[in-house]
Design a protein around this nucleic acid. Structure first.
Lengths: 222, 222, 222, 222
DNA sequence: AATGAATGAGGGTTCATTCAT
DNA sequence: CATGAATGAACCCTCATTCAT
């Protein structure tokens, strides 16, 4: 009935129209609640047509989300690999230096399909990406804690839970910025600012830790 | 058929068993995808039995989530009211001082029903709590920006987007801690640490801003 | 919760309160659509309480409708019996004379519980009274046709279908008047007027029949 | 499972089979009590199949009843419009003359789908047609009373309630004939006969009124 | 006498999926 | 390639009825 002719749309392939419509509905309602029939209708087809391109609703979801998810994992893995090059006991200190220049690349990977990232973050309940962000966070926490453990010599580090919290907070902030509709430059600017806030804040906190230990907890808030 | 005698289950009231089972399923599958019949079955009843206690699936959800949501809003509102007492131009500076002592209270409110908070945060799609955290974040951002705007005299503030990002990050961290299964003391400790990191980090960043302005952006990372 | 104390209601017995409430709901929604629970609640009880007085929803309906239905059948049967007393071949002519004086009695029987009659007429789908009026009509038609058949000598009667239609119309009018909320005197007045209209109208029609037969259908509408 | 091949059933389209089955069940049980599942099963389908053709149970009902209801209203409206053409003070007298020739048309409209009319009359509780006949009756009563009121000069009219009763009786008779399974010619014949009975009967009754008034109620039954 | 809890069957409706055409 | 018809399971919810208390 409301079927649009292909010619009206230039050369937009069927598959792409389906993906576009699916994105829209998955974003609006999430994976579980988005009805396949409406996805198909908005693309100008009947729901049966989808099965010529995707084996199931879930595969359709992955057709949208897999590329950015894989690209992101690849990018993060390569950065992690780079971080692993220094000797174990120096790894912690070099991390920041290695990491910072990669920020724009990371952002660009995620921005290559922002809607797909939104989908992963907000609409993936019921799919394999349900815990995607959580998994990234966990891995980073592990990496850092591993580095902390292997750092030789006295190292003023924060307590484990605080460190974890900050790592998770940093990554979550990154993710939130990606899905925030801010433009690329703003995101990068914010990421850098947040990075510095964390860096400076952590340094300051560790000095307090020093002081505290030396002066047997004389000051401190509360 | 599967009707269990109350004696077999001790004195757990029906309503409580339903709530418990509902919590479990809502947590696992989210509001929309959790089937009422399974909730009922896991509680040892038929699905019709639920309707003796709750008018609808949604009401069942709210029976779990309303108490902590209302308590949280009340607590946050009262803190915001307290923050409004200083004269407008001094509000920004006093915020932290007023806010910090309330952290344990805030944590306690949320911890009064941790699962309910998880539900609100992760499983409320399709309910009135869908945007609960987002709303809290928005309000806090507004309050702070309002205070910034009214602060008399030269005020070294961060750019608007960075500030918003940090506020959102802070609150999100709080929420994540609540739903993280850490114990109360750890959460409070982390919240205070994160608060100090943000505070010190922001102060450091603003000094850089000073320097930058004075020396026409000589340094700074990339 | 909203349970009224018996003392507040004087000596209104439980059973009567249930019947009253049932009447209300059956009238509003019909037998099938009226929920027992609401009937019970409006009477100030729980739905289980009904089963102390009535074996089923259907029995509750009959508790309301049986009395007037039986009384009506009895009254109509006695009138029919009286009509049967004249010799078969004179029965037709005496019918009207015998019937008319009973009109007020018939009306009074139905008015003894007007709501119950409404129930039978409008809300009895799914019960044994579904075809109550239809049955009365059928019986009257049979009686009259029987009398016509046994009337000796030339009798100018209308065609069978027309006669049936008129009988049904007359009785239906009676029923509609009963359920019309008009007062007793008005109903009787209308019944008598309608009776005369039918009588005079039929007489006139039969003369036309005469004329028609004699003058070989010269006139007549269309 | 019970899916029958189309060939086994000739060329009866699915939609028509559903409508047919729906008609059957709606007639038997009424709109509310007729289960969609059984309607579907009797048509040879699963209940979900209905929703490919009708948006809801109610729409299915209207798919059956709307056509005849609309056609009937249109026909009656056009007749009413025609009756409105004479000057107001002569309207009453011309009504019958205008109306009678339309009887066959009215009958034909209703007979175009007799089962649908039965549905409207007997099985429409819970739908927009619940008061269809009542509305027609009301409108006709209004029209006639309006004409009576505007008739100039002495007019021997019956008392208001009697008049209303007769109008309602006449229309109800028409409706009952339609749903009576009599054939078209019989119905028309009966309608005309009933019309004449009413006409002659009313004329006779009005003369009695004359006499009564002149002779101060000397005679009259009872 | 009445409750209140619970059942179990059934209600209308939605939806991912299949498949002949 | 795409449709359109249909399935079948699952969904939330309602209700007459039962029964221990």
């Amino acid at each position: 009935m409301a079927r649009r002719k292909r010619s009206e749309l230039g050369d937009v392939a069927t598959r792409d129209r389906i993906l576009e419509s699916a994105k829209k509905h998955f974003l609006k309602s999430g994976f579980q609640a988005a009805p396949l029939r409406k996805i198909a209708e908005d693309a100008g087809f009947t729901s049966g047509a989808l099965y010529g391109y995707f084996a199931s609703k879930e595969e359709l979801f992955y057709a949208i989300t897999d590329p950015v998810a894989k690209a992101a994992m690849k990018k993060l893995d390569s950065i992690r690999a780079e971080m692993d090059t220094p000797p174990a006991e120096k790894r912690l200190l070099s991390m920041g230096r290695i990491y910072y220049p990669h920020i724009p690349e990371i952002v660009d990977v995620f921005l290559s399909d922002r809607d797909a990232v939104k989908l992963i973050v907000y609409g993936s309940k019921g799919t394999k990406y349900e815990h995607f962000v959580y998994n990234i966070v966990s891995r980073n926490i592990d990496v850092i804690n591993d580095a902390v453990g292997k750092t030789k010599g006295r190292v003023h580090t924060l307590e484990r839970e605080v460190m974890d919290t900050l790592v998770e907070g940093y990554i979550s902030t990154l993710v939130r910025l990606i899905v925030s509709d801010k433009d690329r430059e703003t995101i990068i600017k914010c990421m850098e600012a947040v990075g510095r806030v964390y860096e400076n804040g952590i340094v300051a906190l560790m000095h307090v830790g020093d002081t505290k230990k030396r002066s047997s907890a004389k000051g401190g808030r509360k």
